[in-house]
Computed example of a mutant assay.
Amino acid sequence: MDYLEYLLDPEHWDLAVNGNIPSLVVEHLYYTVLTLVIAALIAIPVGLYIGHTGKFSFVAINAGNAGRSLPTLGLIILLVTVIGFGLLPVVIALVVLAIPPILTSTYAGLRAINPASVDAAKGMGMRPIQILFRVEIPMALPLILSGLRSATLQVVSTATVASYVGLGGLGRLLVDGLALNQYDRVIAGAVVVALLAIILDLIASGLQRLVVSPGVSGRALTRTSNKPPSPSVGPATATAG
């Protein structure tokens, strides 16, 4: 239980101390948010185009397979030898990790839409761009956001590799702890990363609940089915005296 003593030590939470846990968390979140923004700006438009047009669908499928097999640490080391040390090789490697789940979920979300909904929109006179933004994206939003949540969990847990090339973040607890044989620091770093991943996933889940329409997510149907049945009023009967 030495890692609890490490986590509860006030010195490790003192902002005036170099390498304190709050500053490491902020750096870790910076790497994560920067990666997700860049990956979303790349993967979502590509996924929307592939899902809307049906062209180049093999790109989305192969991207998912490549993302699961590509070693991020090995890619960072390769990029460092080519580009040099700094933030750029780390961000590139993390973006490569984050693109496949976002791309494949965006593509799958659009392809899972009932064609009758698209045909109805065409029958109402909507243009293709209107169909995309007013019909397809709202209906595919649950899967798109699930891809972002999956990418968030992968990036926040993998961003610790930034410390292997001299950057900060919670990986410093792991790298420095292993270098100094301080395993309480290593376990404490792993616990903080896990807690951060859980908190980010809960926040993403709450945002998804706010953004996705109840009719698309099924919450409207659930609320309707949970309502108590209204009392029925039978027809009045008259008796003849």
Results as ranks from 00 to 15, higher is better:
residue 4 L to K: 01
residue 44 I to P: 06
residue 114 N to F: 07
residue 127 R to E: 10
residue 135 V to I: 14
residue 199 I to N: 09
residue 192 V to C: 01
residue 188 A to F: 01
residue 130 Q to E: 14
residue 15 L to G: 09
residue 180 L to F: 08
residue 108 A to E: 14
residue 191 V to H: 00
residue 26 V to F: 14
residue 50 I to W: 04
residue 162 A to D: 01
residue 137 I to C: 09
residue 166 G to P: 00
residue 23 S to V: 06
residue 23 S to W: 03
residue 172 R to Y: 04
residue 15 L to E: 09
residue 35 T to V: 06
residue 27 E to G: 06
residue 239 T to G: 11
residue 26 V to G: 11
residue 113 I to L: 03
residue 94 L to C: 02
residue 59 V to T: 03
residue 223 R to T: 13
residue 238 A to M: 10
residue 18 N to S: 14
residue 230 S to W: 07
residue 13 W to C: 03
residue 56 F to Q: 08
residue 133 F to L: 12
residue 2 D to Q: 12
residue 189 G to Y: 09
residue 89 P to C: 11
residue 190 A to Q: 08
residue 180 L to R: 11
residue 129 I to Y: 13
residue 198 I to Y: 15
residue 102 I to Q: 10
residue 137 I to G: 03
residue 124 M to L: 15
residue 138 P to C: 12
residue 150 S to D: 04
residue 113 I to Y: 07
residue 193 V to S: 01
residue 198 I to H: 10
residue 10 P to I: 10
residue 117 S to N: 12
residue 165 V to P: 01
residue 53 T to Q: 11
residue 196 L to Q: 03
residue 83 I to T: 07
residue 158 T to D: 00
residue 190 A to M: 13
residue 39 A to T: 01
residue 224 T to K: 15
residue 55 K to H: 14
residue 63 A to M: 09
residue 164 Y to K: 04
residue 72 T to Y: 03
residue 4 L to S: 01
residue 18 N to T: 09
residue 68 R to L: 13
residue 43 A to I: 10
residue 138 P to I: 14
residue 195 L to K: 03
residue 113 I to N: 01
residue 67 G to D: 05
residue 180 L to H: 05
residue 9 D to M: 08
residue 46 V to G: 10
residue 140 A to M: 12
residue 128 P to M: 12
residue 138 P to T: 13
residue 142 P to M: 13
residue 117 S to G: 02
residue 125 G to Q: 12
residue 21 I to P: 02
residue 14 D to V: 02
residue 9 D to T: 05
residue 25 V to Q: 07
residue 71 P to R: 08
residue 240 A to G: 09
residue 204 A to P: 00
residue 132 L to E: 05
residue 231 P to H: 05
residue 52 H to N: 12
residue 216 V to T: 10
residue 133 F to P: 00
residue 164 Y to M: 14
residue 117 S to V: 11
residue 142 P to N: 07
residue 93 A to V: 06
residue 217 S to T: 06
residue 204 A to W: 11
residue 230 S to V: 12
residue 187 I to P: 01
residue 17 V to S: 12
residue 95 V to M: 09
residue 103 L to E: 07
residue 10 P to M: 08
residue 18 N to L: 13
residue 152 T to A: 08
residue 52 H to P: 00
residue 41 L to R: 02
residue 41 L to P: 02
residue 142 P to Y: 09
residue 14 D to R: 08
residue 193 V to N: 00
residue 181 N to Y: 15
residue 163 S to G: 01
residue 191 V to M: 11
residue 118 V to T: 13
residue 164 Y to W: 04
residue 66 A to P: 00
residue 220 A to F: 06
residue 31 Y to V: 04
